[in-house]
Design a protein around this nucleic acid. Structure first.
Length: 850
RNA sequence: GCGGCGGUGCUGGAAUUGGCAUACAGGGCAGACUCAAACUCUGCUGCCCGUGAGGGCUUGUGGGUUCGAGUCCCACCCGCCGUACCA
């Protein structure tokens, strides 16, 4: 042993570039990552991670979500579960078209070339992706089933075509409501200002599921996502109330204006009504002398929604239309206005205005000099002056100035008013949602063609199932940017009507790419299936997905669409389940060194290929896990990766060279003072098993940062004993073995290499470390004979005493009091109380000031 | 405005049910090894006072509960994300 005292390196160095590709190839040859989906002998674990868009390069953000996901997969596999971790590509979408226009190539060629490169990059992670299940959505074998599903939805009345004002991006064309972001209404994809256009478009009837979508009992979302979806769906309870119009010189009256309100209790405070400029009764009700002004306002409102409606102009504008309505509860005549602060698309597009109890109505009443009548008040404030809308809601509020309802609590009064109106047919309880139907039409080439034909005689005719898929033509003529080439592809356009055979035109809209991503994990279970979109048996046994990982940026897009789509598939008889996944986890985002979003234009991107070449995939994986909590993300640190690289080197050294000594340490090779080799062995074993206990919990809770920290501690402990008598003995060997097993899910290559060398060294046949079972904690090993107990006086730490592990409270108290430091602080005072906390974890001596 | 998340050393961050704040890293300083450097190794590193032993302070701010608070309660400040005239 002593002959190694001064030698530095007798074993070869850790060289990830040499070992990583070798093992990746070996695993692939052995088919280690191909899941037998038919195996029913083991528990199934379907682990899904969001498939990437083939933009061209895998970036560090992909590594950040995918490598910890891979660690989860490996951890579960080591627990004997049959793990399925598929991967694919979200291959339709606009960037391919933009690149194609720019370079004069087919979007397909651009996309497929990118996919080829990204497959190579994804393989360099060393992840256990099952490539045999790969799905590429732009392939006809996938998108034909988008079309097939669309036709089922059409039959079931879940898909429909309608004309309405839609959000329109000058670059991307039509957008769904969820795809418009921010106060200034910008496109989620390109950031351009979004306009409104009146268009015939295809919709999916997802509002049907509004209430069901609010029920999260079968899906475990992170809280922020659940909150965002709940707000997005925006359920409001209240009442619908019908106001009749009053007769006037230009109108006989009696028309019904229906309003929705969440505050029926304030009905007596309605002093005017407001219609949205687009409301259908505006024209009919407008008085001749008001018509010019009203029409000018309507025209301006239409233009403003199209051009610019920044929130800066919060000033209330509007015009009186010269007609009155009658308040059904008291017969009062109130004037009707039209204003753009009432939105056509929400509720009924008309409101009863209660300026005393609604801030917007208050501002409008102030601007137009309208009456403000208080009808809700806390006791004693009946006539208190208002300098703004009173919207507080307290338990002791009562209705005032409300006829027969005066004096009732506000809640109860509201309910009684609705009930009484309902009895007269003038109102009813009602619920309104913010959620809209999903607009899926896109005026784009690179997407799934919507499989319908427009016949002059038969109208909209579905493409028969046997004619699917409706293929995208290969030759694409953009003739300048922005226009859908399908609209001038005569061969694509001109088809006979499936009903009458007469000339007809194909639909040229394609589907929102969020359709592709709304069901892809079902297809992973049978990617080659020819006769149906999904394999019923596989879907039945493998879904809902156990765990889904990916970014939170899709909280009200993908993560909502997929839930809606699952419910639609269920309702046309394709699925039994209500939700697509059981649990969803959102990782954070990796930012540039400057703390800003990584982008090529900022020059703050980090290329993973470069890091892999320099430090190896294992170090990159480990560093991404170590930098902080997984759901937090954070700025990229260029220096931090050196730390985990050093750690891996130390793991390498303690495994292969336990007896070596470092020249730089004067105490190298010596046991700590007063410690025997037996003591050292017990310490090593206790450290290993305590680490195993903690690390197991960290993996289960996705706490990869502390998992790595604890493995570092264990390797530091081993390093301290390296070269001593304890190094290389049974306990040491067991600790190294546990260290490698615990590290294997996170750093699969180095652990496989060291595992193989250990087998080699002891003459055992090689088996992969990744097929090993997760080790069991030996609780007896973690127990220790003596422990240090902190002693506080009045809650302040003063000393530590060493006692036997099983010392009684009496012993603890006596030892604590016997401490000289404690005695000095007490200065002769008798303790009032001695608290032994946490089952003997800490002693606190309480003493009052003399 | 509303909703959500967060604020701990120089930096990333750690801290079961309230129980030794700052684990593990990065960076820095000092030393060993080296002709030298890199690599590697060892030690130190929250702030203030003190030569020292030691003492005091410290988890955004101010209060409170408690033997004991980063953790619980109240009020406020700051940052990030979402949302936006939703009746």
């Amino acid at each position: 042993m002593t002959e190694t005292a001064d030698s530095r390196t007798r074993v070869d160095r850790y060289d990830p570039a040499a070992i990583e590709p070798r093992w990746q190839q070996r695993w692939e040859e052995l088919g280690l990552h191909t899941t037998d989906l038919h195996d029913s002998t083991r528990a199934r674990y379907y682990l899904l991670t969001m498939y990437p868009y083939p933009s061209g390069d895998i970036h560090i953000g992909h590594w950040y979500i995918k490598t910890p996901t891979d660690a989860i997969a490996r951890f579960h596999r080591m627990h004997g579960e049959n793990v399925f971790l598929p991967i694919g590509f979200d291959a339709f979408g606009l960037p391919a078209e933009n690149a194609a226009i720019k370079n004069g190539i087919n979007p397909r060629d651009w996309t497929m070339a990118n996919i080829a490169n990204m497959r190579r990059q994804l393989r360099s992670m060393g992840a256990t992706f099952d490539w045999s299940a790969e799905v590429v959505t732009a392939d006809p074998s996938y998108y034909r089933w988008n079309q097939w599903l669309f036709l089922r939805f059409l039959e079931a009345g879940l898909a429909y075509r309608a004309k309405s004002a839609v959000d329109w991006c000058p670059n991307d064309g039509t957008l769904a409501r969820e795809q418009v972001e921010g106060t200034d209404r910008r496109c989620w994809r390109c950031g351009a200002k979004v306009e409104k256009r009146d268009l015939d478009q295809w919709y999916l009837r997802v509002t049907k599921y509004a209430d069901e979508l609010l029920d999260f009992s079968e899906i475990e979302f992170p809280d922020p996502v659940r909150t965002m979806q709940t707000n997005w769906i925006g359920r409001s309870e209240g009442g619908e109330i019908d106001f009749a119009t009053a007769p006037s010189e230009h109108h006989p009256g009696g028309a019904t204006i229906r309003v929705f309100t969440t505050r029926p209790d304030t009905l007596f405070g309605a002093t005017f009504m407001v219609l949205a400029p687009e409301h259908e009764l505006v024209s009919e009700l407008t008085a001749p002398d008001r018509r010019a002004e009203v029409e000018a306002y309507v025209a301006r409102a239409a233009r403003e929604t199209e051009i610019e409606r920044l929130s800066a102009d919060r000033e209330k504008t509007g015009v009186a239309i010269g007609a009155d309505a009658i308040n059904p509860v008291n017969g009062e005549r109130i004037p009707i206005y039209m204003a753009d602060y009432v939105l056509a698309g929400y509720g009924t597009g008309a409101i009863m205005a209660v300026p005393a109890h609604d801030e917007r109505d208050y501002a409008f009443a102030q601007a137009f000099g309208l009456a403000i009548r208080r009808v809700v008040a806390a006791p004693g404030e009946d006539d208190a002056a208002l300098d703004g809308a009173y919207v507080a809601h307290t338990a002791d509020e009562r209705l005032v100035n409300s006829g027969a309802y005066t004096g009732l609590p506000a809640d109860e009064g509201g309910r009684r008013i609705v009930a009484d109106l309902e009895a007269r047919g003038a109102g009813r309880a009602a619920v309104t949602y913010r959620l809209r139907d999903w607009l899926i039409s896109r005026q784009r080439y690179w997407g799934t063609p919507i499989p319908v034909i427009h016949c002059p005689t038969h109208g909209i005719v579905p493409v028969p199932d046997e004619d699917l898929p409706v293929l995208l033509p290969d030759t694409v003529d953009y003739a300048g940017s922005g226009v859908n080439p399908l609209t001038r592809d005569e061969a694509f356009l001109n088809v006979p009507c499936p009903v009458c055979g007469e000339p007809a035109k194909r639909e040229t809209d394609t589907m929102d790419t969020f359709i592709d991503s709304a069901w892809y994990w079902y297809r992973y279970l049978s990617p080659g299936k020819q006769d149906a979109p999904i394999d019923d048996d596989m879907v039945e046994t493998w879904t809902p997905v156990e765990q889904y990982t990916g970014g939170a940026e899709h909280a009200v897009m993908h993560l909502l669409y997929a839930r809606e789509f699952t419910k639609m598939m269920r309702d046309v008889g394709l699925l039994q389940q209500n939700e697509p996944w059981k649990k969803v986890f959102n990782q954070g985002q990796i930012l540039g060194v400057d703390g800003e979003r990584m982008s090529k234009s900022r020059g703050n991107t980090q290329d993973p290929d470069e890091l892999v070449a320099r430090y190896g995939a294992d170090a990159v994986r480990l560093f991404l896990m170590f930098m902080g909590p997984w759901d937090q993300g954070g700025p990229w640190s260029p220096s931090g990766i050196g730390g985990v690289h050093r750690f891996l080197n130390r793991v390498w050294t303690v495994t292969l060279d336990p007896h070596g000594r470092e020249g730089g340490d004067p105490d190298a090779g010596k046991l700590p003072a007063g410690e025997s080799a037996t003591d050292a062995a017990a310490t090593i074993r206790a450290a290993a098993h305590r680490t195993l206990r903690d690390v197991t919990e960290d993996y289960q809770g996705f706490r990869f940062n502390t998992m790595v920290a604890k493995l570092m501690e264990l390797s530091n402990t081993l390093y301290r004993y390296r070269g001593t008598e304890a190094a290389g003995d049974t306990e040491w060997d067991e600790a190294v073995r546990l260290l490698l097993l615990m590290l294997a899910p996170a750093a699969p290559h180095i652990t496989e290499e060291l595992w193989a060398r250990r087998a080699d060294g002891s003459g055992r046949a090689w088996t992969s470390i990744h097929t090993e079972s997760w080790p069991a904690v030996d609780e007896s090993a973690t127990r220790i004979s003596v422990r240090e107990v902190p002693v506080q006086v009045n809650g302040k730490l003063r000393d530590r005493v060493v006692v036997a592990a099983d010392a009684t409270e009496e012993v603890l108290k006596a030892e604590a009091l016997a401490s000289p430091k404690v005695q000095a602080i007490l200065a002769g005072r008798a303790p009032d109380r001695i608290v032994v906390a946490g089952g003997g974890k800490l002693v606190n001596i309480v003493v009052r000031d003399a």
